[in-house]
Amino acid sequence: MQRSLHIDPGKCTGCLQCEMACSFENEGAFNPSKSRIKVFTFHDEGRFVPYTCTQCSEAWCLEACPTDAIVINMATGAKEVKDDLCVGCKVCTIACPFGTINYSQDTGKVIKCDLCGGDPACATACPTQAITYIDADATGLDRMRDWAGKTDNAASA
């Protein structure tokens, strides 16, 4: 079954364990500046929101790449960057409307979320289930369930 990363910002505390897990998995060091997932603090609103690549089916980054360095992993559905083909032109970073593929000045290549090949480290590390890795066809299930639960007035009266 193909799975997606599901973000529930209401559960996020801004701890950045996900950013450390991502960088540790990909680069062997705890380094949020190299994380493919970023947590945004909306200070005035009192909200924390993790955000990363949503693995578009028709990916702008893939279409834009002049060297075909971005390929689809058929098992996970993830769009992966092939470092040996990437020339660091950064056209994909301009093409992606969501800003979730970025240049890494240390390597000269671009980096993006690749779902860790099917076992995303961020979801494992998240202490509050703000990030989960669930059935790609059912990411709305929890919300549907919440609203379904409100429908029987007699039961909640």
Partner: peptide, 8 residues
């Protein structure tokens, strides 16, 4: 402070 080396 801005640190991008990471802790290894």
């Amino acid at each position: 402070i801005r640190g991008t080396k990471g802790v290894a």
